[in-house]
Design a protein around this nucleic acid. Structure first.
Lengths: 302, 302
DNA sequence: TGGTTGCGATAGGATGCGCCTATCAGTGAT
DNA sequence: ATCACTGATAGGCGCATCCTATCGCAACCA
C-alpha cells in the first residue's frame, strides 16, 4: 500500500508536545527545536491530515476536537515506537533470547552435557535450543534460517560456512571385552582386517568418516548397520565385531566397562567438531565467542 | 522526552515491505522508490536501532530474530498510523461527530424543537449536544473551549465573537386573560405603567433586555422574579401582573390560551437570536452553514 | 498611557537528508 | 559463457527541515 503516509514521527511528537504544554514555545523548548520550526511542522501535519488540530487564539492554544483525537492516537503510535526501540535494543543483545542449534547425533549426547552448564552460567539470558539431526538436515535448516548454528564435524560434506572448532576428536577402536586384539596397546587400521567392522547407518557423517579411515586398510564392513553409537557399542560388546568410536563417546558408551577400547596409531584418524553458521549471519561474532566458551568448558570437563 | 526517535515512519514501511517480499528490489518497487534508496533507508534504520534486521546473503534475504521482532512491532505502529489518518479524516468532516452548543433558557425550549429535526436530517452524521445555560456561563465555556458554539441573544453582553443571526425575536406583552389593556390591538410601553410588570431572575439576559425596554416608559417591576418564562406566564395568567415575553415563546407558553398577548407598537423592542462561536474556531464556516440551516428551518416551521 | 513581556506567524538563508541514475560485484540458470 | 538477477556503492540534485531575526498582537504594569 503506497498510502500517503507523509507524516513523520517527529511531527507526532511535536503535536503531542503542543497538546501537553498548550504552547508552541514551550513545546518547541521541550522538543529542542526553535519555535518557528515547530510551528511549521505542526502546520505541515495539519495540512497532511487535512484537519486543524490546534486553535491559535492570541494568548492561548486550544485543541480542536480533531486535535484531541489525533493527539490521543499519536500518543499510542509514539508508545508503539518506544516499544519497538526497546525491543530492538533487547533483541540487539546477541546473548539474550533463543539460539537454535542443530547437533549431530554422534555429538549431542556426549558434548552437550559437558558444555551447556558453562554456557548457561556465562550467558544467563541466553536460551539454547538444540535439535538433534543428521548433518544434511542441519545444513539445510541452517541455510533456510531455521537454525542459527550447527554443531557438526567439519570433515563432513557441508557447504561454505563460517565455523569455530570446539574439539579434535580422534577415532578409537572398540572391541568386545577380552578380544585378542586388545592385547596391543595401540592398533593399526590393518589390525581390523580380520574382524567384521560394524558401522552406523547411512546419513550419519561418522559412518563416512569411519569408512574412509578403514579404506586405508582392508577392513570389511559387517552386514548390520546401527542407528546410534549406543547400539553400536552394544553390538560390539555382544561380540558381533569391532568398531570405530569417536573418543568423545567412549566415556558414556563404555561406562560399564563392557568394551576394550584402544587408540589407533598415529596419525590417528579424527574428526573436528565445530560450531558452524552462515557467513552472512549477524551472530557471527557472538557465535565465535560461544564456541570459545564451549571449547574451554570441554577442556575443563571433570 | 527528547528520545532519539530518529527513525521515520517511512523506514518502518520499508522494513515491512522487505519482510513481506523478502527482496530489496521487490520491496523498493512496492514502495515506489529505487532499490538503492530503500537499501540506504534500511541500513539507516538498522544503524538507529543498533541491530541488523535482515541477513543479506547473495541470492536471498532472511529476517534475523531482531528483524522478526522489529517488523512485528513496525506493523503495529503502521496500523496505528493508519488509524490516526482515518480518524483524522473522519474528524475532519465538520458535519460528523459531536457539536456542543450552549443555549440560553429563554430560547432552548422554543427554538430547538423547531430546528433540530431539520439539522438532523440535513447532517445525519452530526450529533448536536445542547446545554441549557445562562449567557455568562455559555460565554465562559465557549472561551474555555468546552462549547463549540452558543445560541444566545446578541443584545446581551458577550465578548468579541463571530456570529450568524437565526431570527429576530420581537417582545410582546402578556396579560391575564380578559385584562383591560387587552382591548387594544397594539400596546405602547407606557401602557404598562399602571400594572406590576413581572420579570425573570437575575442572570437571564432576557431580564436585562425587557428591563431596558421598560425603562423607556415608567413601568415598575413587581417584587417577584421568575426563574423561567413558563413560571412567568403562569404568574401572569393567575393575575399577578403583566410581562414581556419574546414572541418565540408565545406559542408554547400560551398553548392553552390562558393569556392575552398583544404586540408592542413599533419600533417594538426585540432581541436577535444568533449562533455564536470563537473567531478562531476552525468550525467557523460550518457553523455559519449550520446557522443558515437553522434560520431556514425556523422560517419554514409549521 | 507607554513600555515591557509574552505569544505565534513570517521571512530568508544554510544544511543535509532522501531521492535519483549509473554502475559494480557476485550468484544461478541457460 | 552469457544473461538475468540479487544487493551494495558512487555521485549529484533538490527539497525539506532547521536556524536566526523580525513582525504584529495582546496583556500586564508602572
Amino acid at each position: 500500500m503506497p498510502s500517503a503516509h507523509d507524516l513523520s514521527i517527529r511531527q507526532l511528537q511535536y503535536a503531542v508536545a503542543v497538546a501537553d504544554t498548550l504552547g508552541f514555545r514551550k513545546a518547541a523548548e521541550r522538543c529542542h527545536v526553535s519555535q518557528p520550526t515547530l510551528s511549521a511542522q505542526i502546520r505541515e501535519l495539519e495540512d497532511v491530515l487535512g484537519v486543524q488540530l490546534f486553535e491559535r487564539d492570541k494568548r492561548r492554544v486550544t485543541l480542536t476536537r480533531a486535535g484531541e483525537i489525533v493527539v490521543q492516537r499519536a500518543r499510542k503510535v509514539l508508545l508503539g515506537v518506544d516499544d519497538l526501540l526497546n525491543e530492538a535494543k533487547r533483541a540487539g543483545d546477541p546473548f539474550s533470547g533463543t539460539l537454535r542449534i542443530g547437533v549431530i547425533p554422534t555429538v549431542a549426547p556426549y558434548l552437550l552435557p559437558e558444555v551447556t552448564p558453562a554456557v548457561s552460567s556465562k550467558y544467563p539470558k541466553l536460551r539454547l535450543v538444540f535439535r538433534e539431526e543428521k548433518t544434511a538436515d542441519i545444513v539445510r535448516e541452517l541455510d533456510e534460517g531455521l537454525l542459527d548454528a550447527g554443531l557438526l564435524a567439519l570433515e563432513a560434506d557441508i557447504g561454505d560456512y563460517a565455523s569455530a572448532p570446539i574439539l579434535k576428536d580422534p577415532f578409537v577402536v572398540a572391541l568386545p571385552k577380552g578380544h585378542s586384539l586388545a592385547k596391543k596397546k595401540k592398533l593399526a587400521i590393518d589390525d581390523l582386517d580380520d574382524v567384521p567392522v560394524l558401522l552406523l547407518d547411512d546419513g550419519h557423517c561418522f559412518r563416512e568418516q569411519a569408512l574412509a579411515a578403514c579404506e586405508r586398510g582392508g577392513a570389511r564392513e559387517a552386514a548390520f548397520r546401527a542407528t546410534s553409537l549406543a547400539t553400536l557399542a552394544q553390538m560390539v560388546s555382544s561380540g558381533a565385531g569391532a568398531t570405530l568410536l569417536p573418543e568423545l563417546a567412549v566415556e558414556v558408551e563404555n561406562r560399564r566397562g563392557q568394551l576394550d577400547v584402544r587408540p589407533l596409531a598415529s596419525p590417528a584418524p579424527s574428526r573436528t567438531i565445530a560450531l558452524v553458521w552462515r557467513k552472512s549471519s549477524p551472530l557471527g561474532g557472538p557465535l565465535g565467542e560461544l564456541a570459545q566458551t564451549m571449547r574451554a568448558a570441554f577442556r575443563a570437563r571433570g
